[in-house]
Design a protein around this nucleic acid. Structure first.
Lengths: 220, 220
DNA sequence: CGTTGCATGTAAGGTGTTACATGATTAC
DNA sequence: GTAATCATGTAACACCTTACATGCAACG
């Protein structure tokens, strides 16, 4: 009765059913077996989870931990540092492992959520100065280059560790992802440049004054 | 005094400062000049915005529209259909254009937010059956292929329209993005497969029972 | 004549953020 | 000794979703 992924008769399952993704992400951090404090969890989330999943605020991590403990999926121990200064170290419980395994096997994967602020700006490029757009694309590309390098470093650090094979794989995945982002951004950048170059003559945007033209946004 | 992107003396600017991205996205939909109802806006958001930005719920679109109108950035007109059945059609105002231009020029771009649920599942692959992982990666790849095709169609539909050059560019960008997603997913998929194949002999996961090993998640 | 689409809106509640508050420890 | 880091937590609030409620229009 250690791990029963398919046991829908498990009376706890209905309590796990509506937990948000973030809860599972935090429990997932604990599932690597290391007891950690909320503060350490936040640092780890920033360093690794942030590559592919929004890193929650510190205060939220603490409340997630309290929730996990109240549900028996994690347990905490007070560790005294020097004098009276205590810190709370959280560890996953067997029930927590069972829950995670159940989640992996049974819970549908929600569609990935993307809020690509840079694409949004370019999409509304008719309300912006072209140089502003190229600037922000350049910035984005640079940020992604840095992230790709960081992801590579993370991948290399985990590669040799047998318990970290999946994180290593995802770190490599993240590196590819961010390098693709760079390519896509640079592609957009050159398009914006050639567009603004070709419009040096016939300036004066028609959007806003012209009658509604273009593809019907409602009924394509 | 039609458009003053840099006019920080504008007394309205401080009211615009903390508007969430979603508000700008909705106002952006209106900035293409077409007066639209909340319902139409939602459909458009689902069709186009969803490629690169989370499409808000219907009810939220309505409240965003009310907020935009209360701030003078959009205005609505009641249009009577047949008998007493009215619908409210929203249009951007000059102040709305001014606000959008100011936003594009002055407001910092928030970092893109990614919640890649599939990567999260693979990252926690040690708690899952390998066949489950490959299945969900396959599903993800298929979904992305469909999205890429749809983005191509959207790009082609806007390409000829001069007012929709930026949306066309972003649609092309989205097509590339989702095709990269497919490649990355398939790459991960083959890695998961080769990993599970190589572990047919020495099974029994050590994670959870072994003492904490692997890269220090806190202090790298 | 019933189902699907169009169209609008309210209410409740959860998710997640920012700001604030506190204090010990470590490093320079 | 003072700055940065470690460490925890509360309170307020904004964002956003789900569920619900309503009714017309159009298609078959």
């Amino acid at each position: 009765m250690t791990v029963q992924a398919k046991d829908d008769a498990n009376p706890d399952v209905h309590r796990w059913e509506k937990l948000p993704q973030t809860t599972w992400a935090v429990l997932g951090l604990l599932s690597f077996g290391r007891p950690l404090t909320g503060y350490q969890l936040k640092k780890w989330a920033d360093a690794i989870l942030a590559f592919f999943y929004w890193s929650p605020a510190v205060s939220q991590i603490y409340s997630e931990l309290r929730r996990l403990e109240s549900m028996g999926l994690a347990e905490s121990e007070l560790v005294a540092g020097k004098e009276t200064h205590q810190k709370r170290v959280y560890a996953i419980t067997p029930a927590g492992r069972e829950a995670l395994t159940w989640w992996q096997a049974e819970v549908d994967v929600e569609p990935p959520m993307l809020k690509h602020t840079v694409a949004l700006r370019v999409w509304l490029g008719h309300m912006a100065d072209p140089s502003r757009l190229t600037g922000l694309l350049r910035e984005h590309a640079d940020r992604c280059t840095a992230l790709a390098t960081a992801a590579d470093a993370a991948a290399e650090a985990s590669e040799s560790e047998p318990d970290f094979r999946f994180p290593a794989m995802v770190a490599e995945w993240a590196a590819s992802y961010y390098r693709s982002e760079v390519r896509h951004a640079e592609n957009l950048l050159s398009q914006v440049e050639s567009l603004s170059a070709s419009e040096l003559g016939p300036r004066e945007s028609s959007v806003g004054t012209a009658a509604p033209t273009g593809p019907d946004p409602v009924d394509p």
